[in-house]
Design a protein around this nucleic acid. Structure first.
Lengths: 197, 197
DNA sequence: CCTTCAGGTTAACGAGCGCTAACCTCCCTG
DNA sequence: CAGGGAGGTTAGCGCTCGTTAACCTGAAGG
């Protein structure tokens, strides 16, 4: 898994614009002509890069879930021996970065999953479950008072909290990226702590 | 505004089933024939009750937002002199009841807003904003350390937390309604408290 | 200079969808 | 008992959308 350094390909342009459009108006609400227009080509030209509209959504969702899980695993590996508290903070930080930097993707992630073909959906669900279970393990280490079902519920709820970023910018000014990230981080920790008691 | 006591009308059946279907597969992903079949009539028979598919979604979303706001205002009135702490708990409880009892509606509420005609969307947005501002006022009374922008962000984030209920039942067992409600309530309070510090 | 191929183009097809038209059938009321 | 409206039905229209077919073009390679 080498890190990409070269310029963004046409394929990647398409994925990025498709993600934005899907997030804005829903998978069924966006036509292929629109996606094409967003990258400067028109309509069926997309079929030189993807076998179909479904494939774009599938690649996006699998990519998102995989990226989240991969990042979390890397953080676990890096935190080797650093303590569960630090690790949980690292996980939270990673999720917040994702939620703030890729809002359209976060939106898609829990909104359009049901539009996938069975095999793709199964794969995404599995990646998501692994991600959740990884969090649950760390959370229970930091907050031993939490039973497993409660911890899982708490993790899902905190995801809901962190994934609220698309709603934040709606009414105008949000207090800058750094401050928002800090606020979300504190709230997540506070929510977990309160879940334990 | 008299409280309804009579049996559910056909209109209400339709709205309920439409909400469920829209939540499951998205507004554009559900056909009128499906909605009709879900209430035992077929296809165009719906047009005896609604002028169009859009109108169903509009009535659902306006109804949701209005119901949330109305309930919150009632709680404010009832808590007259009872203290801000108690009032905030009451607001949280009301929102949780809604999120647990009407999951499809909660899902629609922040997912299909953009499919509305401009006038309807404007109305929903206004109701939502009033609801948020009502919360912001109470939250800032309980947690005076919060500035207004931070309080607003915190409120949106806590909504994300509370509205995560549709994701909770996914993987099998959730620990019973009462316990879930309690957990969510504690986490919401914990998140607000941590936002203040 | 010819070939090839990646990456476009426009035209058009077929399916699905929202919605309308036309018609039917109870049930209620004067 | 006439009649009329509420609430259904089926047939079908028109439009949109995903996808395919057929064609074009410019750049690279021998």
């Amino acid at each position: 898994m080498a890190t990409r350094t070269d310029a963004p390909t046409r394929r990647e342009q398409i994925l990025k614009e498709a993600a934005r459009l899907f997030a804005e108006r829903g998978f069924h609400g966006v036509g292929v002509d629109e996606i094409g227009a967003a990258v400067g080509i028109s309509g069926p030209g997309l079929y030189r890069h993807f076998p179909g509209k479904d494939a774009m959504l599938a690649e996006l969702l699998v990519g998102i879930s995989g990226q989240l899980l991969t990042g979390a695993k890397r953080r676990v590996a890096e935190a080797d021996g650093g303590g569960a508290e630090r690790l949980l903070d690292s996980l939270i930080e990673g999720h917040i970065d994702f939620a703030l930097d890729d809002r359209p993707l976060i939106t898609l992630h829990d909104r359009e999953l049901d539009r996938l073909r069975d095999s793709d959906r199964k794969m995404v669900r599995q990646l998501q479950r692994q991600y959740v279970e990884l969090w649950v393990g760390v959370v229970r280490e930091v907050y031993p008072g939490l039973g497993e079902p409660a911890a899982r519920s708490a993790v899902h709820s905190v995801f809901g909290l962190l994934n609220s970023t698309p709603h934040l910018g709606r009414g105008g000014v949000l207090p800058g990226r750094g401050a928002t990230a800090e606020l979300l981080h504190r709230m997540a920790r506070g929510a977990f702590a309160a879940a334990e008691s």
